[in-house]
């Protein structure tokens, strides 16, 4: 396992910025800014991948970085914006948990993730840092899914979780083999597309994308 010596400071900065972008999503009440912040987060993630590629000299990670920029910070955000425009939803994120408690819970999740990762022995200081950021992203993504009403925010929550895993994979093992990474990319794209289709259907049948309405099947 080659340790990333070069650019360790850059990495820490980037990972910290990724956490900041996550909190920006958590603290925002407008759908547009949530999506924009997700784009920024994905761009930062691509920078992490680029740094790893540069310091390990593995060319295939560059491909991953370019794909991340192309899809996660351009195509997917634009697709989400397209959905919002097409179905003319109200521009606010409707919340079950208000902004300030959300931010506090987010902070707590980061602390918990940090202690959780401390308890497993991981190779270096850096990957431990990156891994705890990754677990925080996964748990905050999950929290966003359950605390926001709009179906689009649940989609965004899943994407944030996925970004978290991407960060984890890249920091632990310098990324999975190329074929697997490409497969995951493909899956994420199709998933976004199909969730988009479902959101259109939800909007057509319920005339809203409020997930409060999707609570009839029980027992």
């Amino acid at each position: 396992m080659a340790e990333i010596i070069f650019g360790s400071n850059t990495m820490q900065l980037l990972i910290a910025l990724i956490l900041v972008s996550t909190f920006m999503i958590l603290g925002s009440t407008r759908l547009y800014s949530c999506i924009r912040d997700f784009g920024i987060q994905s761009f930062l993630l691509a920078c992490v991948a680029g740094t790893v590629a540069f310091s390990t000299g593995k060319d295939e990670i560059y491909i991953i970085a370019v794909l991340t920029i192309l899809f996660k910070s351009i195509v997917i955000p634009y697709f989400l914006l397209y959905i919002i425009r097409e179905i003319k939803v109200k521009k606010e994120v409707e919340l079950y948990v208000k902004i300030s408690p959300s931010l506090i819970i987010g902070g707590m999740l980061v602390v918990i993730s940090y202690y959780l990762i401390r308890s497993i022995n991981v190779i270096s200081e850096l990957s431990s840092f990156a891994l705890s950021a990754s677990v925080s992203l996964v748990s905050i993504g999950l929290f966003i899914m359950i605390s926001r009403k709009k179906a689009i925010m649940q989609m965004l929550g899943i994407l944030i979780m996925e970004n978290g895993l991407f960060l984890g994979a890249i920091s632990l093992t310098n990324g999975m083999p190329l074929l697997v990474e490409l497969g995951i990319f493909f899956d994420v794209l199709i998933a976004v597309l199909i969730m988009g289709i479902l959101i259109f259907r939800i909007n057509k049948t319920f005339e809203s994308i409020d997930t409060d309405l999707l609570k009839t099947l029980i027992g």
Binding site: A151, L198, I202, T205, F206, L214
Partner: peptide, 14 residues
């Protein structure tokens, strides 16, 4: 594509 199936599919995917 009725209400129940849309709800089921959304829950399933998520």
């Amino acid at each position: 594509s009725n209400k129940a199936s849309v709800e089921a599919a959304w829950k399933y995917v998520i």
